[in-house]
Nucleic acid binder design. Structure first.
Lengths: 342, 342
DNA sequence: ATGTACTTTGACACCGGTGTCATAATGTCG
DNA sequence: CGACATTATGACACCGGTGTCAAAGTACAT
């Protein structure tokens, strides 16, 4: 019993003495096929090491049991390193897909490129997950484009008022509140924020707003002079903090828009001879692995990546099934560590 | 100019006033088609937002321009976390695939499961990359199985003598040598190894051999009592080191089979009141991000993940093209940090 | 024996491209 | 002007499955 090349359903039909149609039905356990026939077909299939050709199957059924993930890169990011937070998300999304019986196509995209999400158009994936920091303004129009083509997709990111797409995101505003409240409990009065607090980075902006507005409710202001712009890299955080210090801004607490920024900030603070947490309290955002390893370990607002990956996948699947879904907001959680524990 | 549903090549043929065959040729820039016709076809295609159906195309051509990666999990690993080293590899492989114009299917596999690599059989991928620590003995027979089916695949891992598959790996033996030489230069006399030094973890075993044999050439022995078994997790490294100390083994230098193990070891050493590097020198393996952030920062044998990802992809593509390729061994590099810098 | 319902099967069109072959149109040369 | 090469195009089979429809076979009631 042998075939040239990979076995097809016709080969099985031949050896099992039935028609190809019956083979197809038997292998998918259709109730239309006789028990004994089914057994025989399976037996032959196993012997020939048969596997359904997904291309043929997908072509006929017009669906792929596959999702695609598009990872946008921080445009200035180091080419060889990937933001560890997104790497975690990638891991949890992979797991969530596996659990749902879907395959996952992974692709990196430079945000500047024309990232028309080809996967869904070319029937390689049933839906798309978009993931990445980046300039929201830059790709807003592209989202619109996807929408107009009826492409099924969900985004990880800020759920900005009036944003047209479906998102899953951390409650960034609430996260900023947690940080502010913690500083207030610690009796801190002069707070600074490191990160891009503009509409170009809606996630960071939302974190900042939650932070600032909570402080103000307690009579603490965090105005323009107390913000240093930074993208989500260690270097950028280092330089931003450095320039604050160089400008002689006085502060006793620092909230960074991400852990990478916070790690860079800590380096700058240490170099300036400031003690953490005695002189300056520091809070980050994300809870990446490194934040637990640095000295002092970093108090941070945790994003639950496991849950986030799951929600992205289940929401996308709902969307594909045509169900009505809404934006999902995940609760942040403050992880207390040494950088605020004086 | 409108179509119901997604546009097909027939729709384009209709609007461009040519046959579907010509459309197919024109879109693939076949030299057989007239310049003006080509222009017209492209124009219509763009207007209709046409994208080739990859399922149909792959079905016909019997190839997919897709690679698949199978990630094996450390059986005892925490369900929600992925070994950061492999996460890095995943990132670099993704990048390498993109550079070669291939898509990447990602899949997690429990090593205990029947991980018949279905992707290639089902024509979803042209080749497979296998990645993961794990018990080699467990899946050796499965590799044999893949080979016998003429599946194209490459493995990341130890290139064990007589291993039947094609591998890309770090020169683990050389890495062990680097660690030993460094200890010798530092005048260390009592060395221990933390990790599974058995044929069940051939990579760790090779690292150990390079380490041990180099030490012996300098008259230093590293026998059974100086080895503590551990899998590649922080916890395991912690407990292994703890038990060495509890058994009153004296040592002034510790080589861990991986950075995660080393991080756990450092924790145990610190708790025992030992100073690093004064009392004990520590060297890890991998150079994951965390090793740069812990205190003291960790001297480690770096594996070049960027290069590794590239080699895995290019080797696999060569294999698919039917070219003759051989195992690839990548040079390790010792990264000096505080844990050995007294 | 005849009619009806149900089970099981095979024939066949179809998904949307790609590759082969035949043919029409144009150009070139003796 | 006819023979022949060259260029451009269309018709059609094909990749390997899935879904529909008709029909054969069996069971049971009338």
């Amino acid at each position: 019993m042998k075939t040239k090349g990979k076995a097809t359903s016709f080969d099985i039909a031949h050896f099992a003495g039935v028609s190809q149609s019956t083979v197809s039905r038997a292998l998918r356990n259709s109730p239309l096929v006789n028990e004994e026939t089914r057994r025989k077909v399976w037996e032959v299939a196993k012997k020939l090491n048969y596997k359904v050709d997904k291309n043929a199957s997908n072509l006929r059924t017009q669906q792929s049991a596959t999702l695609a993930i598009l990872l946008f890169e921080d445009p200035t990011g180091d080419e060889s390193q990937i933001n560890p937070f997104f790497l975690n998300m990638l891991g949890s999304i992979t797991r969530a897909c596996a659990k749902e019986g879907y395959d996952l196509l992974v692709s990196f995209q430079s945000i500047s490129q024309d990232w028309r999400a080809e996967y869904e158009d070319s029937h390689r994936a049933d839906g798309i997950i978009l993931l990445g920091y980046g300039d929201y303004m830059d790709y807003q129009s592209r989202l619109q484009n996807l929408l107009s083509q009826n492409t099924k997709f969900v985004c990880w990111g800020a759920n900005v008022e009036g944003r047209p797409d479906l998102t899953v995101s951390c409650d960034n505003y609430g996260g900023g509140q947690l940080a502010a409240q913690h500083f207030i409990e610690k009796g801190r009065k002069n707070c600074v924020f490191i990160g891009d607090a503009s509409e170009h980075s809606p996630e960071f902006l939302t974190r900042f707003k939650g932070f600032q507005e909570t402080l103000e409710r307690h009579g603490i202001s965090c105005g323009e002079r107390h913000i240093a712009n930074a993208i989500s890299t260690e270097d950028s955080g280092y330089h931003a903090t450095h320039s604050l210090l160089a400008n002689n801004i006085k502060f006793d607490s620092l909230f960074a828009a991400s852990d990478l920024i916070a790690i860079g900030a800590i380096k700058a603070l240490k170099e300036a001879g400031l003690r953490i947490p005695e002189d300056v309290n520091v809070i980050g955002f994300d809870n990446i692995a490194a934040s637990n390893y640095i000295t002092p370990s970093l108090t941070t607002v945790q994003q639950n990546t496991t849950l986030a990956g799951q929600m992205l996948v289940t929401n996308l699947l709902s969307l594909i099934r045509g169900e009505d879904i809404t934006d999902t907001l995940l609760p942040p959680k403050l992880i207390l560590r040494q950088s605020t524990s004086q």
